[in-house]
Design a binder for these strands. Structure first.
Lengths: 229, 229
DNA sequence: ACTGCCATGCTTGTATACAAGCATACGGCC
DNA sequence: GGCCGTATGCTTGTATACAAGCATGGCAGT
């Protein structure tokens, strides 16, 4: 976890700490169930408790941690209910966004999308899952921006913490990245030809892929899930 | 603005302050452009700066306030772009939710919805706008709960601050409440007969009503809007 | 009377202190 | 050896202090 303490601009510290902790949770570097303390994190990051606390409060809003007074802060386990909620939110927002993106995009927009696709293919072949995850977010975020409502992405992120952990855990599965790239291409193709219905259909299908791996993941990491049998 | 300081349970203070400030902003009791200071709010509420600050940070996430270091905290003016964003989010989430609600609801569920409608009619006739606003939220929230994804409502609330202010300002307009109740009845009727398409159509139409009053409101309160000419 | 400069008082962001509460460990007793 | 009670050390929530920066007002000079 990296925090640039040289930059003391207003609020930058809290934002950095929030992003660093969120990424560590999504990537399971901070594994589900792990106990954290504000004091301990503050010391290891070389800051006071206040910005750490404010970052943790925001992560609690995102349901990525649970703060228990007098006991500590715990990285939450993946909740199937929260995954289902996030899936619902994601489908509703991103399918509506991609429709608008298909209706509004011009050639330059499509070229930019294809640029992201090209980089995804490079990273797919290299097996760099962290990098690929960033590029996955970048494509989805770009499509939301193209809809004229970038808020769809940033808002969905607030609910998508649990689903994002599942997304990240899915990446090492055999041929997973190949399928993801193939589906991304279908979406971008539909946006290119301005076919809103096809764009939505491809997006909906694509977003449901994530859930396909859920049972396997629960088998591999039963302790990561809160409703494990 | 009411804060119950007798209740010192963990986190309750911040949650109360957040809700009180949000409601004061949505109702324009704290009017757009108004300068606030953490210290001043803390003194008037009889608490320290910390819970006030944490509530304000959350309100900043909701785009209801702007925090300017060294200068103060300002109640944000209504942004037409933010209203459009919120409208997009609301339509996407609530239309998807009402479809599921139509598919899943049973008789008891529909009875509960009709109970809310009945209370809305009483309040409509009494002209109690604050009370009506609460009941409006209650119906929409109940429909989201019926979809099985209550998160749709709570998440949308995070993006809907600006739109909610427009919703609240619209209420005094002649016959507005009558039209709202009539449209609520159409939605509940579609849910009752399990017609997902009709439920979505009615909801979409209903949600767009709010925007109808926008130009009039800008005429009445140009200083409440940030993009006023 | 006007302009420019500087000090002051206000703000937020972060650091630190204090209060309350919980779990655990240790000691004493049976 | 087990059980019970108490103290301690940890946590979070909130209170308070400090640092940095900005705008404004007052004063001095022209």
């Amino acid at each position: 976890m990296k925090i640039d303490r040289r930059v003391r601009r207003a609020g930058v510290m809290r934002a950095q700490i929030y992003a660093a902790l969120r990424d560590a949770i999504v990537s399971a570097e901070l594994e589900p169930g792990r106990q954290l303390s504000e004091q301990e994190l503050a010391e290891s990051l070389g800051v006071s408790r206040t910005p750490v606390r404010e970052a943790l409060v925001r992560l609690r809003d995102d349901r990525l941690v649970e703060i228990v007074p007098q006991l500590g802060t715990f990285v939450s386990r993946v909740s199937l209910a929260a995954v289902a909620d996030a899936q619902f939110v994601r489908e509703a927002l991103e399918c509506a966004a991609v429709r608008l993106a298909a209706e509004r995009s011009d050639r330059a927009d499509v070229r930019a999308l294809k640029g992201i696709l090209a980089r995804q293919e490079e990273v797919r072949d290299a097996g760099d899952f962290d990098r690929w995850y960033v590029l996955d977010d970048e494509l989805h975020s770009a499509l939301c921006e193209l809809s004229g409502h970038g808020v769809a992405w940033s808002l969905a992120q607030r609910a998508n913490g649990h689903l994002n952990r599942v997304r990240r855990m899915s990446l090492p599965q055999p041929r997973y990245l190949h399928e993801m790239v193939a589906e991304h291409k279908l979406i971008v193709a539909a946006v290119e030809r301005g076919d809103a219905d096809a764009a939505e259909e491809s997006m909906r299908h694509h977003l449901r892929m994530v859930l396909a791996a859920l049972d396997d993941l629960r088998g591999e990491h039963p302790d990561y899930f809160e409703d494990a049998g």
